[in-house]
């Protein structure tokens, strides 16, 4: 290489008109109580709606004198939630354990299968139809069989929840692994990258946003799967989950307790959604369009 620089030309610097825009400047937004001012309406609007709805509910129950074994008011439900916290929290823990174990198993198996499928078209063609069959068969209809075959109640609940949760992970990860920019694949081919390098540096990062959207769906489904399977199993005793508490309460006509258990399941679902959304935001915020706020 010759060191001659063109006379009259200095070192290259990116000062071309349109290029000049140095680093993008992100104006810091005003914060109220630690949150950006613009997010408060997003929190306050649904909150106000909820308060309005709950008040209407409570008032209707009181003025129409609806008996609490038909429809308890929100205040009674809240009181029951506190009074029965001991039993309910034990059950919540049981349901949570199954949900998370199923979700972890779904992520592991779903991602592993997706990677295997993209490495071998042949395997994908022969196995994917069965994964779809497993997905489209309602879990309620196969849960009794699984409970009979497996014997152990907890393990069968786990399997049921896993069946429901794993498909969204599998299918979205497959799409993600195959959605790499073709020119990037060409580039890797030019540089003689091997399969493992293509997977590690290209396919897996490209699949991340797709996997995360699958995870958001799978998180909610794992909870639904765990609850549904528990309904079918109908197991009692100390180590039973929230679904069983609902069944039990309905047999005993303890409707406020039923609602309390229902509230806990809903809150759990919301918490799972928030956590998976937050994980997704953390992983994608620097580069993926879905996590980037549009300039206004």
């Amino acid at each position: 290489m010759s060191d001659a620089t063109l006379p009259g030309r200095t070192m290259i610097t990116a000062t071309d008109g349109t290029d000049a825009g140095a680093m993008p400047v992100f104006a810091e937004e005003r914060r109220i109580l630690g949150l950006p001012a613009s997010t408060w309406p997003n929190i306050l609007a649904p909150l106000a709606m909820g308060v309005l709805f709950l008040s209407a509910w409570e008032l209707t129950v009181r003025f129409r004198e609806i008996p609490h074994y038909i429809l308890p008011g929100p205040i009674l439900i809240a009181k029951t939630l506190v009074a029965d916290w001991g039993t309910l929290s034990t059950s919540l823990w049981v349901t949570l354990r199954i949900t998370f174990a199923a979700l972890i198993a779904a992520v592991t198996v779903g991602v592993a299968l997706a990677i295997i499928f993209t490495q071998s078209r042949w395997l994908e063609k022969s196995l994917l139809p069965y994964a779809i069959i497993l997905q489209v068969t309602p879990v309620v209809s196969i849960a009794p069989l699984i409970i009979i075959w497996v014997g152990d109640v907890n393990l069968s609940l786990l399997i049921c929840a896993w069946i429901v949760a794993f498909f969204p992970i599998l299918s979205s990860t497959i799409i993600g692994l195959n959605s790499v920019d073709h020119n990037l694949l060409n580039l890797f081919q030019i540089y003689g990258a091997n399969r493992w390098q293509g997977l590690r540096y290209l396919r897996i990062p490209a699949a991340l946003p797709f996997f995360l959207s699958g995870l958001k769906i799978a998180g909610g489904l794992a909870l639904i799967g765990a609850v549904v399977a528990e309904y079918v199993a109908g197991s009692g005793g100390n180590a039973s989950g929230l679904a069983y508490r609902i069944l039990e309460a309905s047999y005993q006509l303890r409707i406020p307790r039923m609602f309390a258990a229902l509230v806990m399941i809903s809150l759990t679902g919301i918490a799972i959604f928030l956590v998976t959304s937050y994980i997704s935001h953390l992983l994608l915020r620097r580069w993926h369009e879905s996590a980037i706020k549009r300039e206004t």
């Binding site: 290489m1 010759s2 001659a4 071309d16 008109g17 349109t18 290029d19």
Partner: peptide, 18 residues
Amino acid sequence: ITRHRLNDDLLDLWWKSR
């Protein structure tokens, strides 16, 4: 405008590295 700058800079790089 950007294209002209990049053309110049590309020639510069080519001149140096051949």
